[in-house]
Each structure stands twice: as structure tokens, then as C-alpha cells.
Computed example of a mutant assay.
Amino acid sequence: MFIIIAALLIGLSLGVLGSGGAILTIPVLIYGLEQSEIIAITSSLVIVGTISLVTVIVNLAKKQINWSMVLLFGLPSMIATYMGAWLASYTEQSIQMLVFALVMMTAAWRMHKAKAVANTANIAPVKSVFLGGLVGTLTGFVGVGGGFLIVPALMTFARLKMSAAVATSLMIISLNSVVGFLKYQQVLIDIELTLDWQVIGLISVIGSIGSLIGQKIATKLPQQKIRQLFALILLLMSSFILIQTLLNF
């Protein structure tokens, strides 16, 4: 029951906000299912990547993905994801969790401040490449998809409306997740650890359903209030993780 509820929340977050999947998934796997940090991060990349990709495929007919931004933002993000995962392989897991907690706090702030921006794209290539690289580095280093940065960036710099920003974010997250997983899987093989594919499969299936439901109801929900509620949840979770990590140093 815990996994089902958690998976639905993860999917709903991705479907409604285009972000928050990994930020919810990693604590669930570490504190709820008692997985190690590296197993949780790797599993999160598979889960969030799968949910994002399923949602993208189902909604391709709506033509909401801005493919120019996928290229300008997504390509440097994928390269940086691999570099971030490589850097993580030389970093203590406690440091990763400390960075993860700080990333969650940043996400809370961004979600609280984000506002809707009107209409179609006005692409800023240099900013897109820079932000894509930043998001990719975070994805690789701490296993987050980076949607909390991608969605506000697409709304602010590319001036995409919320629905297009969410759809484009999910496409970029799915690409980044594949790259990050491939690097982390190499590390797991080297240290002879394996993933729990039953848990990954269950959360991915239920999360995909939750994400599709989230996209259906997103237009009927007050976006600003939803973001603020999510920001509060992130702040509470990040504070808990930060305290736990500092106590274990």
C-alpha cells in the first residue's frame, strides 16, 4: 500500500508539474524501502525516466513538445548528465545526499516563486545550453530529473505556456534518465550490486498511470496553489534529509 500511494504521488507530480519525480522517489526508496543511496538513485533514474517517457508517448498527438528546446536544452543536458554521474562515482554518498537535500530546498523555492507565463516560444539559445548543462549535472550527480529547473526555465526564457513546458520537460527528463542510468549501472556492476526490478516495475507502472491522470486534471487545478503546496512538502522532506545526513557524518 505504501508503494502504491508513493508511486501515485510521484506520477501525479510529474503529470501536473513536469517535475518532482526523483525528488519524491529517492526518499521513498531510501527511507521507506531502506535501499542504499546508490541503489535508490539508480532506481530513481529508471522509474522517473520510464514514467516520463510513457507520458510523452501517450501525449505525442497533442503536439505540445517544443522540439527546438529538446535539442537546445536536452542535448547539453544529456552530456552533462553523464559527466555528473561520472563525478558522483568518485564522491561519498553522504555528500551526494547533502547536495540532494540542498537541491530539494532550491526546488521548493523555485516552485514557490514560479508563475505562469503566456504563450509561445521565444528561444534564448545561450541560456538554454547553460541551463541544460546545469540540469544535466544535477541529474547525473544526485539522480534528479531536474524538472523543477527545466519547467521554470522553459516558461521564463523560452516563454512556453505551462502545458508545453511540462511536456517538453518530460521529454528532456526521459533522455537524461537514460544517460544517467547507463553510467550508474556501470558503477553498480563494478561494486557487484543489483537493482530490485520488481519494485522498479511496480512503481513505474503505477506512477505512469498517476502521471497520465495528472495531465488530465492539470488544467482544472489552481497551478499556483499546487506549486506552493508541493514547495512546502519539498521543504519539509529536504529538512528531514538534511538533518539525517548531518547526523550521520
Rank of each mutant, 00 (worst) to 15 (best):
L17K: 00
L17C: 00
V16Y: 05
I95W: 13
G32E: 12
I23E: 05
K62D: 15
L170A: 06
Y90P: 00
A7G: 07
L102R: 03
I203C: 04
I10A: 02
L149W: 08
T245N: 06
F100K: 03
L232Q: 08
T91N: 11
V56K: 07
F2I: 03
S208T: 01
I173R: 04
V99F: 09
I39T: 08
V56S: 05
A121G: 15
Q228W: 07
L235K: 03
S163M: 02
A218M: 13
I65T: 15
L232H: 00
V166A: 04
V135L: 02
T50G: 13
I39M: 14
I4Q: 02
I209P: 10
L202F: 11
V166T: 12
V54C: 11
I4S: 15
V117K: 14
T137P: 00
G32H: 09
P222G: 10
L72S: 12
V179C: 10
G132E: 04
H112Q: 12
Q185S: 12
S211P: 00
L235Q: 04
E34K: 09
S211H: 05
V129F: 08
L24G: 00
S94R: 12
Q35N: 10
L102S: 12
V205L: 14
Q224C: 04
L17V: 03
I65G: 12
S163A: 13
L102N: 01
Q35M: 15
K220H: 15
Y31F: 15
G133W: 02
Q224E: 15
S94C: 06
Q244M: 11
I123L: 14
G180R: 05
V16D: 06
I191A: 05
A22H: 08
I26H: 07
I213V: 15
S13W: 05
T55R: 02
L12C: 01
I95Q: 09
A114G: 02
K216I: 06
F249I: 15
G21Y: 07
S169C: 04
P125M: 10
D196F: 07
I191M: 11
T81L: 01
A101T: 11
A116K: 13
I241T: 05
T219I: 08
G15Q: 00
K113R: 09
K127T: 11
N59Y: 11
N66Q: 10
V56Y: 08
L212S: 07
P27A: 09
